[in-house]
Write a protein that binds this DNA or RNA. Sequence first.
RNA 1: UGGGGUGUAGCCAAGCGGUAAGGCAGCGGCCUUUGGAGCCGCCAUUCGGAGGUUCGAAUCCUCCCACCCCAGCCA
Length: 568
Amino acid sequence: MTKATVTPPPNFIRDIIEKDRKEGKNEGRVHTRFPPEPNGYLHIGHAKSICLNFGLAEEYGGLCNLRFDDTNPSREDVEYVDSIMEDVRWLGFDWKDRLFYASDYFEQLYEYALQLIKKGKAYACDLSADEVREYRGTLTEPGKNSPYRERSIEENVDLFERMRKGEFPDGSRTLRAKIDMASPNLNMRDPVMYRILRASHHRTGDKWCIYATYDWAHGQSDSIEGITHSICTLEFEDHRPLYDWFIEQLGIFHSQQIEFARLNLSYTIMSKRKLLELVEEGHVGGWGDPRMPTISGLRRRGYTSESIRDFCERIGVAKRESTVDIVLLEHCLREDLNERAQRMMVVLRPLRLVIDNYPEDQEEELDAVNNPEDPSMGTRKIPFSRVLYIEKEDFREDPPKKWFRLAPGQEVRLKHAYYVTCTDVIKDERTGEVVELHCTYDPESRGGWTKDERRVRGTLHWVSSSHSFPVEVRLYDYLFTAENPGETEEGSDFKSSLNPNSLDILSACQAEPSLKEAEPGTRYQFLRQGYFCVDTADSVPDALVFNRTATLRDTWAKIEKALKMSEK
RNA sequence: UGGGGUGUAGCCAAGCGGUAAGGCAGCGGCCUUUGGAGCCGCCAUUCGGAGGUUCGAAUCCUCCCACCCCAGCCA
């Protein structure tokens, strides 16, 4: 059950940490943090970061903080704070008593800012947002100094204090670091440290009307918490000189910023902004829709936290931008659930099958193994009778080559039960659709074996029509049809590749009786179909709803495809 | 045309001067009361390209090419 703990694969961050420890940097401490902004739900890309930060801390006997980077109240909400904590916990990580908020440091940050002003390293600037942009210059041309750059320290202190007191309207002034308007790195061209913004903060309410920017808040927060290795994504690489500059000017504990490539997954998007758009425009049922790449979506879909952590381990950590094939995620899920999920029989698209030589009033109970991978999961009883349902797609009137399933005259095994041979096909007179099959069974084949050991290639799942009960099953497909939905042609947006068939609801499925007691969240393998879980939102005891987490690998589909190809 | 990064198989990814790990996908085969699972085998004469250094280069040097990020008072 428990996988052998293998040494995690090497990566460049581990190399850095090991070098630091060897050199005795930070007394050998490893202290990381996961710093989400509470402006959306966590997705699988965050899971990579969470596993990295908490994983590294654990591996080196260190600590990992959970810190909310809540410096922009206009986009943040406690709903997100709560969901983020729930998701990190669900993934199996524990920040213990180290829950922090950048907003915890607002006062300290303000004091730090005063220090910079007094050192002549920051100034109040009256330029408007548009003017700041103009003065910044371009990628190839240097910027020019703000006319307010040379204000006296006294004036800057006074103005900054009055900014805090709310004497100036929103956007009318900023506090800027005085660095170098000609720097080739735009982040060093007097970056804004504070903006005036009258927005109620989810934690500090209306106490503040000036808010620190990311650049000003992040590194200092890391320093305050004694973070040794501040791991973030690649787009912050050119912020690092600024990160270092602030810390060095202040002369405070120096955290080290390290950047890695964020996760991209095929057939989905990871941008919080775009995910929000899907939610707000109703393309999905919410952040936790089972088709979403969010942690809550994956959870509701039936993913296990173990499989997600395994996935994060397997994809590695590097600086190369990459898009991981989503089939690897599915593989991790299947590998986990194959060992743990109880098998059940559910017919998704029922076709009536009557066993003509089985007595009408007879029924019996057959033994079924709950999980062939794990005998300790025991067995259960399954009722059998004259009238059954099998899967529509398990019958072909004109079977192709290599067809092992049911066809006129062909014998198959009903899993755990008997061999049956198809003797007659009943069709709807008007549509020609096959509506009922007649078979005969071999009473000697009880349990699925005969003494003559004759070969029966096909094994079908089934339910007894008088014992089974109806359930709803939701089949999910990728949310997008494009492999890289984020990379769109000029003029079209990512929603143009939304998959219209990402959700298929089957409301007339028939389930074996043992499923009646299924609790929300429980995962099963429906034999020959895939992994399913009881929906946690919509399922009720008398009307069960199952989500398909993933299909089983379908070798027959490949064979049939190859057959069709060779015919052409 | 400024600065910062990155190029190893279809997709990830090790490799750190001694002759290309591993996983996923794919392809064969075995096995199978799930066309599932499992097992066995195959899958880079070559590391973005060209030169150079070296007995020896994916690893070091030079030049070139491609792609990504940066001009929010977002993070």
